[in-house]
């Protein structure tokens, strides 16, 4: 399939991109690497009048460490992270996630900001960055605001982005040395969208656990204090205290009504917990 005709603009800087976006109506789409939007355009599921290409903007490809967090421009690619071309504050967690997104040819163009903006519940960064406690800077002509990952995704393909706004940077907090990380996804075929994602960051010494159950067809379930999954407290024996029944009940409450799907989600999460403990 070929896309329906669209116009194309490649603004010279972010300010110009935001200006085009602000004057435009709803049938304008921002495109970065285009690895999610491209298929939708080709299948004519999306027929914008105009694409605004931000993939070349140097302002969106900067990466710097600011205090205790790493600030990544939205147009950093999955392969940039996979290959370690940027610094890491997550003790390898982001590198591991990046290396298993889709396929290498896709990772060479697909961007972290684009993936988040697309807000596909089955996308890796949606779940992984929620578990890592990341925040996003959203930018429009009017200014910028910061939104926590868990507030950014509001539903299937729906984010908190307002008209005229784009994801500018991703702020990833440094992972404490005492934290344990686990990330597991279930895909029918390697590289396909996940059917279940479990992302966990557990710090037994601080008695904290951030847990995400992702790829549930709506916004992921983000538990910033997931003690209830471990019988009420997070300690060194959390692997043995993980309570599948609690996870099952949480999924049922979230509307995952198919028992088989819940079973897959619970087991993927259990594996993520085990991976963290390993």
């Amino acid at each position: 399939m070929k896309p329906a005709p669209f116009g194309y603009e490649r603004p010279r800087d972010l300010q110009a991109a935001l200006a085009v976006l602000a004057e435009a109506d709803a049938s304008v789409k921002i495109i970065a690497g285009g690895q999610s939007l491209g298929p939708m355009l080709n299948l004519r599921l999306v027929e914008p009048e105009l694409l605004i290409d931000i993939a070349g903007l140097a302002e969106l490809k900067q990466v710097e460490r600011q205090g205790d967090e790493l600030v990544l421009g939205a147009c950093v690619t999955h392969a940039d992270i996979e290959d370690g071309r940027i610094p890491d504050v997550t003790r390898g967690a982001m590198q591991g996630v990046a290396g298993n997104i889709a396929y290498r040819a896709v990772r060479n163009r697909g961007t972290i900001g684009g993936s988040l903006s697309h807000a596909d519940p089955a996308a890796d960064w949606v779940s992984a960055l929620s578990a890592l406690g990341a925040k996003l800077t959203l930018r429009s002509l009017a200014g910028s605001r910061i939104v926590a990952m868990e507030d950014f995704i509001v539903g299937a393909l729906e984010s908190a982005l307002r008209a005229g706004e784009i994801v500018k940077t991703v702020h990833v907090p440094a992972m404490p040395a005492s934290a344990h990380w686990g990330y597991v996804k279930s895909c029918r075929k390697t590289g396909e969208f996940a059917h279940a994602i479990g992302a966990v960051m557990i710090d037994p010494s601080a008695a904290t656990a951030r847990i995400v159950i992702g790829a549930i067809d709506s916004a992921p379930i983000v538990m910033t204090d997931a003690a209830e999954l471990f019988g009420g407290r997070v300690a060194g024996d959390y692997k043995d205290r993980f309570d599948s029944r609690v996870a099952e009940a949480i999924l049922a409450r979230a509307g995952v009504s198919d028992a088989a799907h819940r079973h897959i989600h619970v087991n993927v999460l259990k594996r993520a917990v085990r991976e963290a403990a390993a």
Binding site: F6, G56, L57, G73, C75, T111
Partner: peptide, 26 residues
Amino acid sequence: RKILGPVGSGRTVRTGADKAERISPA
């Protein structure tokens, strides 16, 4: 690869505007 960002992009200083191509949707 040594630089950041989507491969193939950002290799030109020319900004591309193709407003004439703006097509009204069906």
